[in-house]
Design a protein around this nucleic acid. Structure first.
Length: 367
DNA sequence: TCTGGGGTCCTAGGACCC
DNA sequence: TCTGGGGTCCTAGGACCC
């Protein structure tokens, strides 16, 4: 029998810091920008379970976390460390399975052969203890024949949990869970479901299919099949990244176009260089603004060829940004909180080189 | 107590083509 | 002489995930 082991590392960034600094064991630790070092608009990236007892959560404004847990120890994030450690974890997991699919920095799915649920669970325990003894990290595991069910299971007994769902019990396992436990159902969808009287997965299974389709489109079938214990087979999405982006949230909202233009140019150059480093080229440039009221506006443009030089990126960020700005000046004239620059439709450089060189006309920088 | 930075996928309307 | 149907691409916005 084929099983998916869904491995989810507990409080991952904090765990990486604690294993390097044993004096932090058992303490309320928060990875994020320390508000005591000055006002910040940043958020909590990761909180230890001790910090969570005070109500601190990921993505919470750092200022609020500091108010809830005044004694907490703040650690500045070290993403290189977290990437490095993630590679160690994946290398370890490959000793247990030849199929290891990284799904985020702190999650991975393994394909494992085991004759029954009991032996799969035993093997899962070995994976967990290897992660603990060799890497000093805690992982929660969900084990099921399908990845989505395994993921849901991995979430149920954190930290350090291990939940096995044999195939014949899938529907019964899911039935009592809140609909929100299903990946893809977030706060908005949950709210809409509540309005329809859907709270649990069992409610979802029993809801008339046609009405569900009317409300949620194509997602409805997927949801109901899952709710009835027939999850959609997970497809491995092959291929490289679709887009790269960079964001900057200003310490104070910005109301001057020139400041935004200068920042967008700098970000565009950096982004082009980072993408080139990956041997990729974009065919589309995008600019997005988050306004002071937290709503977003964006513009993008597909140029029709792979962008080969940073000035072409910055020419487009200028144009797109000016367009967004002009519209806003005729309306609400809000200030800008966050500026984002994106390169989309990424293609490998090699693929381009394989085509006819110089066939396409050079790009016409806009103005 | 105001809400980061990096991504993915879906939907919907208009343009355009046959 | 007011009017088809299907398909694809592009753009903007929204929801969601870690």
């Amino acid at each position: 029998m084929r099983w998916t082991f869904y491995v989810d590392l507990d409080a991952y960034y904090v765990a990486c810091e604690v294993r390097d600094r044993p004096e932090l064991v058992g303490r309320a630790v928060i990875v994020g920008p320390d508000p005591k070092l000055g006002p910040t608009r940043g958020v909590v990236l990761s909180a230890s379970y001790e910090a969570r007892k005070f109500g601190v959560r990921s993505a919470m404004p750092a200022s609020r976390a500091a108010a809830l847990a005044p004694e907490a120890i703040w650690v500045r994030p070290d993403f290189q460390k977290y990437e490095r450690t993630a590679h160690e974890v994946r290398a370890l997991l490959r000793k247990f399975s030849s199929v290891v699919v990284p799904l985020s920095i702190d999650e991975a799915a393994l394909e494992v052969e085991a004759p029954d649920a009991e032996s799969a669970g035993r093997f899962g325990g070995e994976v967990q203890s290897a992660i603990r003894t060799e890497l000093q990290l805690s992982a929660s595991l969900g084990i099921a024949p399908h990845r989505t069910v395994a993921k849901i299971a991995s979430d149920l007994r954190k930290p350090g949990g291990l939940v096995v769902v044999p195939p014949e019990t899938t529907a019964a396992f899911l039935a009592p869970l809140p609909a929100r436990a299903i990946p893809g159902i977030g706060p908005k969808t949950e709210e809409r479901m509540t309005a329809l009287g859907i709270r649990t997965v069992a409610d979802l299974a029993a809801y008339p299919r046609a009405k569900l389709r009317k409300e949620f489109g194509a997602f409805a079938d997927e949801l109901q099949e899952l709710a009835n214990g027939r999850p959609k087979p997970s497809v491995l999405t092959e291929g490289g990244p679709q887009l790269r982006s960079t964001d900057r949230t200003f310490a104070e909202d910005v109301g001057e176009l020139d400041r935004l233009l200068a920042e967008a140019r700098r970000m565009g150059e950096e982004l082009f260089a980072a993408v080139a480093e990956e041997h990729l080229r974009g065919e589309s440039v995008g600019v997005a603004l988050r306004w002071a009221d937290f709503s977003r506006s964006q513009r993008s443009r597909t140029v029709g060829h792979a962008i080969e030089a940073a000035p072409e990126v910055t020419a487009w960020t200028d144009r797109l940004l000016r367009g967004l700005w002009a519209v806003e000046q005729q309306g609400r004239r809000r200030k800008v909180r966050t500026l984002s620059v994106r390169l989309e439709r990424l293609r490998p450089t090699r693929a381009r080189q394989a085509r006819l060189e110089g066939y396409e006309a050079p790009s016409e920088p806009p103005r």
